[in-house]
């Protein structure tokens, strides 16, 4: 026989022993960490279960890599043995990371539609934990997706070294964290499913195109240059390309032809500064995402 549940027969005194678990700060923190882990785990389960998403997340970047890569190679030509495919490769990997992270974050819109968001929001847990879990989950699946893209490197003539792979994964994670928090913030403002496609088209595509992922940012008209410098992705993609190019055997002519650093007011930003800017963006988006979710219900 099962033991009688304690809640059953005994009349609990209000705010008595029943309330103690919520009071002990140690328990609270470990409970919140469990919540972060659980939200993260759910994100992974859903990612693994939706194979179509993994495949479609690969097809688009692959198309860009080969179609755009070959198409533009004819136009841009080869400089010192370096071609446009090699230039665009880091950008395309970044693109798959960004799209996966964004998609993962925007699944909150689905959760709202199908009610699961409510299950999360009514729970007696901190919304910081929910956003942290969501961010960690989105970042993980995005980094996994980006890492899968590494198998294409040899096909376009990019040499991978173990150090480069580690550097790339770290930068993918940072980029993904920033994009997931951004996505959660956007998703917290989207009330309707129909708006989702619009947001993807109107926000994600321009952000990608104006980030330097698919073509060099030099030689753009002034107003476009301003937009690219306001785009957080610009500062995430430049370091990514820098570490990839640093590991390649490129002639000085090729390096001059395909610059990687972001310039701001004529000043070339060091990689550390670019990364710091991404971190700041990620923190700001995290706070906005938290506030966005706090407003719901």
């Amino acid at each position: 026989m099962t033991t009688l549940s304690t809640t059953g027969s005994t009349a609990p005194t209000p705010a008595g022993p029943a309330a103690t678990p919520a009071v002990d700060p140690g328990t609270v923190i470990s409970d919140e960490i469990r919540v972060v882990g659980m939200v993260w785990e759910r994100e992974l389960i859903r990612y693994v279960r939706t194979r179509t998403r993994i495949v479609s997340g690969l097809i688009q970047p692959v198309l860009f890599l080969f179609v755009l890569g070959y198409g533009m190679s004819g136009l841009v030509g080869t400089t010192g043995g370096f071609n446009f495919r090699q230039f665009v490769y880091p950008g395309v990997v970044a693109m798959s990371v960004v799209m996966t992270a964004m998609f993962s974050a925007l699944s909150i819109v689905w959760d709202r539609e199908f009610g699961f968001l409510r299950e999360m929001l009514v729970a007696p847990v901190s919304r910081v934990s929910l956003v942290l879990g969501k961010t960690a989950g989105g970042a993980t699946v995005a980094a996994v997706q980006g890492t899968i893209m590494l198998v294409l490197a040899p096909l376009v003539g990019i040499h991978l070294t173990p150090v480069l792979v580690v550097q790339m994964i770290c930068l993918e994670l940072l980029m993904a964290v920033a994009m997931t928090t951004f996505g959660v913030f956007v998703a917290s403002r989207i009330q309707k499913m129909e708006s989702f496609q619009v947001v993807m088209q109107m926000l994600l595509m321009p952000m990608l195109f104006l980030s330097g992922a698919l073509f060099p940012l030099n030689g753009l008209p002034g107003w476009l240059t301003v937009i690219t410098r306001l785009n957080p992705l610009t500062y995430a993609i430049a370091p990514f390309r820098q570490v990839v190019f640093a590991a390649q055997d490129m002639s000085p002519a090729a390096r001059a032809r395909f610059p990687t650093n972001v310039t701001l007011f004529g000043y070339t930003l060091p990689i550390g500064m670019e990364l710091a800017i991404v971190v700041v963006f990620a923190l700001v988006f995290f706070v906005l995402a938290f506030r966005g979710l706090s407003k719901t219900e």
Binding site: I45, R46, D111, F114, G115, F116, E119
Partner: peptide, 9 residues
Amino acid sequence: QEQTLDDQL
């Protein structure tokens, strides 16, 4: 009143 399950789990 409305369902709040994750049907992919």
